[in-house]
C-alpha cells in the first residue's frame, strides 16, 4: 500500500483520538454543550489532518507545506479568542462569576488541545516514514506509529494536566461566627452582613473552609484574586448555591488572612455539607495565570532561609 496514504490515515486517526480523549475530560471540567462539542471535534479533525499531511509533504520535497502549519497556528489562536469571547459573554449570567483568569485558562486549554492533535499526528506519520527508511514492512511501521502516537497522547496529557489546590495546600473546615455584623471565619473578618435574617441563614446553613498553603509558592498562588475567584466558582457550581441575584449577602467571598496567607471562604449551599465543600475546593485546578514561584528567585530563597 502507498506509504503516504497509510501515514496520513493513521496520523489523522491518532490526532483525532488525541483531541477526543481530551474532550472527555472537558466535559467534567468545563461546561460545554453539544454544539461546542461538535465544533471542537471538527477543529480537532482539521488540526489532525494538517499534522498528518506535513511529513508526507516534506517527503515529496514540498517545503511550502510548512506555511500551512503557520496558518493553522493562526487559526487556533482564533479558537482561543472565540472561546474567551463566548465565556466572557456568558459571564454576566453566572451567579458566581468564573473570573477573567479562569476564562483565560480555559481558552488557553482549548488552543493547546488543538496543537496536541497536530503534534500527535506529526509524530505518528513521522514514525511510518522512519519505518520505511529502515525497510520495515508497512504493517510493522503502522503498529509502531500507533504505539508512538499513543505514547505522545499520554505524555502530552500528563504534561497539560493542571495541578490542583490539593497539591499546594491543606483544606479544612472552619467555624463561622459573627463579630457584631462582621462575618468572621477562623478569626478573619470577611464582610459586613447587616440583615439579621441573613446572619441567621449563615449560622444555620453556612459552611466554611480554611485553605492553608504548604509553602511560600502556594501563598503567592492563593493570593491571586483570579485563583480565589476560580475556587469560589467551582465550589458554587458543584455544591449548588443558595442565592439569587437580589441576595448579594450570600455571594461566596474568599478572603486572605494577612498574617499568614491562609484563605478563608464561607458559602451558603443547598445542603450544608462541609466535606463536599472541602472536596470541591481541593479539586479546583491551579490556574496557569496565577502560578508564581517566588522560591525560585534569589530574593525568595534568601527570605525563606
Amino acid at each position: 500500500m502507498d506509504t503516504h496514504f497509510v501515514a496520513i490515515v493513521i496520523a489523522l486517526v491518532m490526532g483525532v483520538i488525541a483531541r477526543t480523549y481530551m474532550m472527555k475530560i472537558d466535559y467534567r471540567q468545563y461546561p460545554t454543550y453539544p454544539q461546542a462539542y461538535l465544533s471542537h471535534f471538527t477543529l480537532g479533525v482539521i488540526a489532525a489532518g494538517l499534522g498528518a499531511v506535513a511529513i508526507p509533504a516534506f517527503s515529496e520535497k514540498e517545503y511550502v507545506a510548512i506555511t500551512f502549519l503557520a496558518i493553522a497556528a493562526q487559526h487556533f489562536r482564533d479558537v482561543r479568542g472565540m472561546e474567551r469571547q463566548s465565556l466572557d459573554n456568558i459571564e454576566p449570567t453566572e451567579l458566581v462569576p468564573k473570573g477573567t483568569a479562569y476564562i483565560e485558562d480555559i481558552a488557553k486549554t482549548f488552543e493547546a488541545r488543538n496543537y496536541m492533535a497536530i503534534i500527535t499526528a506529526v509524530f505518528t506519520s513521522a514514525t511510518v516514514y522512519i519505518g520505511e527508511y529502515f525497510d520495515l514492512p508497512i504493517l510493522v511501521s503502522s503498529i509502531l506509529a500507533i504505539i508512538v502516537g499513543s505514547i505522545i497522547i499520554v505524555m502530552l496529557n500528563r504534561m497539560l494536566k493542571p495541578g490542583s489546590i490539593e497539591e499546594i495546600a491543606e483544606v479544612k473546615s472552619a467555624e463561622i461566627s459573627f463579630e457584631g455584623p462582621i462575618l468572621t471565619i477562623a478569626g478573619v473578618g470577611v464582610m459586613n452582613i447587616g440583615l439579621k435574617e441573613s446572619q441567621k441563614v449563615f449560622m444555620e446553613n453556612g459552611v466554611a473552609v480554611e485553605i492553608i498553603p504548604k509553602d511560600p509558592n502556594a501563598v503567592a498562588i492563593l493570593s491571586n484574586i483570579g485563583q480565589r475567584q476560580a475556587i469560589q466558582h467551582n465550589a458554587a457550581i458543584q455544591l449548588g448555591i443558595r442565592k439569587d441575584v437580589d441576595e448579594p449577602d450570600f455571594t461566596p467571598i474568599a478572603r486572605r488572612n494577612p498574617d499568614n496567607g491562609n484563605i478563608v471562604m464561607a458559602i451558603v449551599t443547598r445542603q450544608p455539607d462541609v466535606n463536599c465543600l472541602i472536596e470541591a475546593v481541593k479539586k479546583t485546578p491551579v490556574l496557569e495565570s496565577s502560578k508564581r514561584e517566588p522560591l525560585d528567585s534569589e530574593v525568595g530563597k534568601k527570605l525563606s532561609s
Binding site: 440583615l195 439579621k196 435574617e197 441575584v245 448579594p248
Partner: peptide, 25 residues
C-alpha cells in the same frame, strides 16, 4: 429598620451593611 433595609436592598439589589448603633447602609 430591618424591614426597611430589606425592602430597599431587594428593590435595588444592594447589600445591607450594619454600622451599628441603629444605622444600616
Amino acid at each position: 429598620l430591618e424591614r426597611l433595609a430589606l425592602l430597599i436592598s431587594k428593590t435595588t439589589t444592594g447589600m445591607v451593611h450594619d454600622l451599628e448603633g441603629g444605622t444600616y447602609i
